[in-house]
């Protein structure tokens, strides 16, 4: 299936990727090439074949609905790219916030 520039721009927006305008056409070409190659899957009759989403036969394990860790806000926030704000600067593990650009005026 051939993808056009507009479709690529739409996918980029869905994926939250900024793609410069001049890159859209080459990307459309590359992605079309990949999808043309993928088309060969249509040669295979998959009627009544149950899709396989995981190879592990194991039933997902259950555990008690209890908190197993926590109280480590300082660690959680340690890599915050915009810096972190703590509720109590003398006890960073008491809780805190990631910072983002203003969302609501």
């Amino acid at each position: 299936m051939a993808l056009d520039k507009d479709t690529v721009a739409r996918i980029a927006r869905l994926a939250r990727l900024k793609v410069p305008d001049e890159d859209l056409a080459p990307l459309a070409g590359e992605l079309s090439g990949i999808f043309a190659w993928i088309e060969q899957l249509n040669e295979v009759d998959t009627r009544d074949v149950e899709p396989l989403s995981s190879v592990s036969d194991v039933t997902l394990p259950m555990r008690a609905d209890k908190v197993t860790d926590g109280g480590m806000a300082a660690k959680v926030l340690a890599n915050a790219p915009g810096g972190a704000v703590y509720i109590d600067s003398s006890d960073k593990n008491a809780g805190g916030f990631f910072t983002v650009p203003k969302v609501v005026e």
């Binding site: 939250r16 900024k18 890599n79 790219p81 990631f98």
Partner: peptide
């Protein structure tokens, strides 16, 4: 937001797109 690179943008969506781009 939580780790790694942040590229500032004019709003939140622009920050996401610029960072990831």
């Amino acid at each position: 937001v939580r780790y790694g690179l942040r590229v500032p943008g004019k709003d939140l969506a622009d920050m996401y797109e610029s960072t990831r781009g």
